[in-house]
């Protein structure tokens, strides 16, 4: 699948933002006044920036409000609705927290739950895709929630939580890559089933429908980025978990070091998210003899 920068930015930033909202809603860290406002602004800013960047992916972004209508059937619509509700509730929570110095716990817990539900919906947009076997897996929601919880804890300065969570996340990510590498073969879709001719013999593409490219190939049979897969996986492993996770368990904490860990985690997450798209193979590629 084509790793669109707008989608990588969207899933990375909004995941971090909603993850931070979860921890803030839980009552962590214990802050007031300007510090509280800064935390809340970062959380809402990341979530909103992510959502705005997803609008750049649209062909007709001016109609985006219509996307809030189909929550009964569409995960994308559910995500949109939950994101708006979460941000509104969290804004209310922030108002009480910063200006009235009242950390209203029930509202915070609701915000935290809604934030995780939003991330879950984002993940299900991908996990529901049967035509993309690597995505059609329970690992996808687990990973997205793991990134939100781990990255959120890191941003919230919850050193004792973030360290183990990020190491756990790294393990989960490695497991997901390992299972994902065989997903296409396990799905059982081949050029034989795609054409219905597989029972007769070996099917081979002879001529594509057009001499040039098309939307389907650009969007769903994008192969350029996969060559650097091993290097990117290494960067991701170091960035998302090993550097910040181990660092926080071993090294003394400070703001400068924390910023370094956050940047490392962001870089690692972006590398992993790039691979999430670039390595996902859509079955439609079979018709064109490429995956």
């Amino acid at each position: 699948m084509h790793p669109a920068p707008s989608l990588i930015a969207f899933t990375t930033l909004s995941g971090l933002g909603f993850g931070l909202i979860f921890w803030l809603g839980l009552g962590l860290p214990d802050a007031t006044g300007w510090v509280a406002l800064t935390f809340a602004t970062i959380a809402m800013g990341l979530a909103t920036a992510g959502l705005l960047s997803s609008l750049f992916h649209l062909g007709n972004p001016q109609r985006f409000m219509k996307a809030l209508t189909q929550w009964r059937s569409s995960w994308l619509s559910r995500e949109g609705v939950l994101a708006v509700v979460t941000l509104t509730m969290f804004a209310l929570y922030t108002l009480l927290w910063v200006w009235f110095d009242m950390r209203f716990r029930p509202l915070g817990l609701v915000c935290g739950g809604l934030a995780l539900a939003t991330v879950y919906c984002t993940a299900m947009i991908y996990a529901q895709m049967k035509g993309v076997p690597r995505w059609h897996s329970a690992f996808v929601p687990l990973l997205f929630l793991g990134y939100a919880l781990g990255g959120g804890a890191l941003l919230a300065g919850q050193v004792r939580m973030a360290g183990p969570l990020l190491l756990l996340l790294t393990g989960l990510q490695i497991l997901a890559w390992w299972r994902g590498d065989g997903a296409f073969a396990r799905a059982g879709t081949s050029l034989g089933t795609a054409t219905g001719l597989g029972d007769r013999g070996v099917v081979r593409p002879l001529e594509p429908p057009q001499t040039g490219t098309n939307y389907l190939l650009d969007e769903m049979a994008y192969r350029v980025a996969r060559r650097r897969s091993r290097a990117l996986r290494l960067i991701a492993i170091l960035g998302i978990g090993l550097v910040p996770g181990l660092g926080m368990l071993v090294l003394p904490t400070g703001h400068a070091l924390a910023l370094l860990f956050v940047l490392a985690h962001l870089l690692g997450t972006m590398a992993a998210r790039w691979l999430f798209y670039a390595e996902a193979e859509h079955v439609v590629g079979l018709y064109y003899g490429r995956r």
Partner: peptide
């Protein structure tokens, strides 16, 4: 249609194509 392209992803047959002029 907002042109999000999700339906084209969901189709295993490649039956849907986004029009790049109209979005």
């Amino acid at each position: 249609c907002i042109g999000c392209g999700l339906c084209a992803w969901a189709c295993p047959y490649g039956a849907r194509e986004m029009d790049r002029a109209a979005g």
